[in-house]
């Protein structure tokens, strides 16, 4: 057995800091407040579409290549484009150096992220071709998969890939018994539950869920509350994604 499940969630209880003080979180945020987000589209010259995104201390880059020829050839689909999504963490992105290359966690994240985009990308328009989405985590601070999905959406639009909607993604955690939006590292490590969501947004409205995972422990009621909280957060991210794309295109107009 070459690969093993890394016990990355277990932390010493005695190291746990007080995560919520006077109704505020460690970084001063309220429960339903996102971390500061920064996005820029079109930052890579060679890629067909790209986006740099910061979500709190997360720093990620997304690039989209395609539609282009698929290699190896046997992966081609004569009726539609093949979507590939590769989530990768840089070795220096975390406290302790991460061994380069895909581990089991990255393989799983890549799978569920690809599955989030597959139904919204209009694949039928590009038979035999491939659309590759590459996301690189340069610095990780909890919520990297959501940050990457948000960046990938902007990169896909930047690449001009036709889509039925946009994806905006955010997680909700349960920390010291309360639900918090967009958990940072400490809240993810010491929290009781973590639920990453991604939503499909069409015509400015949340239409459905594109990605859904969960670990931890939550009652059914809390889960419903968490979903509502995530929807509000996703709408704010969606507005930022739109602005980022508009900014890129208005810049091009000036030339």
């Amino acid at each position: 057995m070459a690969e093993v499940e890394i016990n990355d969630k277990v932390v010493r209880k005695e190291d746990k800091p007080q995560l919520i003080v006077d109704g505020k979180r460690l970084d001063g945020r309220g429960f339903e407040e996102l971390r500061p987000i920064k996005m820029e589209a079109g930052i890579l010259k060679r890629a067909d579409g790209s986006c740099y995104l910061e979500m709190g201390r997360n720093k990620v880059v997304a690039a989209v290549y395609g539609p282009r020829e698929v290699h190896p050839r046997h992966l081609q689909d004569p009726s539609k484009a093949v979507i590939r999504y590769r989530y990768n963490m840089a070795p220096f992105s975390v406290e302790e150096r991460k061994r380069p290359g895909p581990d089991r966690r990255s393989v799983e994240i890549s799978k569920v992220s690809r599955e989030a985009y597959e139904p919204i990308i209009m694949k039928e328009l590009f038979p035999r071709s491939g659309i590759d989405i590459f996301v690189e985590v340069l610095q990780a601070d909890a919520g990297t998969r959501t940050a990457c999905l948000n960046a990938a959406t902007v990169a896909l639009v930047d690449a001009g890939i036709p889509m039925k909607g946009l994806i905006s993604s955010v997680a909700v955690a349960k920390v010291e018994g309360v639900l918090v939006l967009d958990p940072m590292k400490e809240e993810d490590n010491f929290g009781e539950a973590d639920v990453p969501f991604a939503f499909v947004i069409r015509n400015g409205k949340i239409e459905s869920i594109a990605l859904l995972q969960m670990d931890g422990r939550m009652s059914v009621e809390e889960m419903k509350k968490a979903t509502e909280m995530a929807k509000k957060g996703a709408m704010q991210i969606y507005e930022l994604q739109r602005e980022t794309i508009m900014k890129k295109y208005s810049k091009e107009d000036v030339d």
């Binding site: 690809r114 599955e115 949340i206 459905s208 869920i209 859904l212 995972q213 931890g216 009652s219 059914v220």
Partner: peptide, 27 residues
Amino acid sequence: DKNDNIVAMQKSGSYILKEEKFYELID
């Protein structure tokens, strides 16, 4: 778990899930 709490979830497959369906499936 034994107290009816949700402890893990995974949406698997290329599709989009309606929120109402999600709640129905939890129950």
